[in-house]
């Protein structure tokens, strides 16, 4: 279980990365959202026994993170935290799929192991792509992109409100939970009896806060509509970015780049 404070700090850190200024940061958010989608769809479109062909796809997260000046170590650490979950899910495959896949010397590798490795690799790639998208775009711009790609305004406004108050409410929640932990003196006094009222109180305070926010909105002439300025535009650079990467993904999807390179080097091809 992650601690509340840790999660909030993490959120803030990832959020701050998006305030950077780089070639990638300056692109319109729609281009980055679309490219991420194409990337993820291509990666997961391989069948379950594909393993080596996934490796060339690292080019996308690595290049984007580098051009976007994201701290590599941080992103890698964030991805590593997710791998155990992928491993648990992937581990079921070797149990159920014992069909021989390939024999390397004395080692017989079953299809299950290959697909397990494939699942972990897919996780690393897709999760990495999501983190990088947020890191080079920022949540606000992602929302703006979603809206301009057709998401209903009600929902994007909801996303923005939610995001804004996560920072406020997780701190409130952390305070309440800390108080409870301190007074339960290390015993397991964290049962339902204290949980209900704790969450209940938090809920009531949340409700009152919503009323105050609504008050503040009305005080400034809110009539049910949100206005926003549109900052960036979808130009040739964006088009080039989306088309370029998509082309790379499709080629890598059609052609096992790893196989190809491996053959070139090992000279198996004659």
């Amino acid at each position: 279980m992650r601690s509340i404070d840790g999660a909030v700090l993490d959120l803030k850190r990832l959020d701050l990365l998006a305030t950077g200024d780089s070639v990638i940061h300056r692109l319109d958010a729609r281009a980055k959202v679309l490219t991420t989608l194409v990337f993820i769809v291509t990666v997961v479109s391989f069948n379950r026994y594909e393993f080596t062909a996934l490796f060339p796809f690292f080019i996308y997260p690595v290049v984007t993170a580098s051009l976007g000046n994201l701290p590599g170590g941080y992103i890698v650490r964030k991805i590593i935290m997710v791998i155990p979950f992928a491993f648990v899910v992937g581990m079921l495959n070797p149990i159920f799929d014992r069909e021989l896949f390939v024999r390397i010397g004395p080692f017989a590798i079953t299809g299950g192991w290959i697909s397990c490795a494939s699942i972990i690799l897919r996780t690393v790639l897709t999760v990495g792509a999501a983190f990088i998208l947020v890191g080079v775009t920022g949540f606000l711009s992602v929302c703006e992109a979603l809206e301009r790609l057709g998401t209903p305004r009600t929902f994007t406004v909801q996303l923005l409100f939610l995001y804004r108050y996560i920072f406020v409410l997780t701190e409130e929640g952390a305070r309440a939970s800390r108080a409870r932990e301190l007074r339960s003196c290390g015993r397991k006094g964290l049962g339902l009896a204290s949980f209900g009222p704790l969450i209940g109180h938090l809920l009531i305070r949340t409700w009152l806060r919503a009323e105050r926010i609504h008050m503040a909105m009305l005080a400034r002439g809110f009539t049910g509509e949100f206005h926003s300025r549109q900052v960036s535009g979808f130009g040739w650079r964006e088009l080039f970015y989306v088309a370029g990467w998509s082309a790379v993904f499709v080629v890598l999807r059609m052609e096992n780049g790893a196989q190809w390179m491996g053959r070139l080097v090992t000279g198996v091809l004659s």
Binding site: V157, Q158, L160, F161, L162, Y163, R164, Y165, I166, V168, L169, T170, T206, W207, R209, A210, E211, I213, H214, M217, L218, F222, T223, G224
Partner: peptide
């Protein structure tokens, strides 16, 4: 309209 901030804050 009052549900607009309420939904957001309850999500948080």
């Amino acid at each position: 309209d009052s549900k607009v901030p309420l939904m957001g804050v309850l999500g948080a």
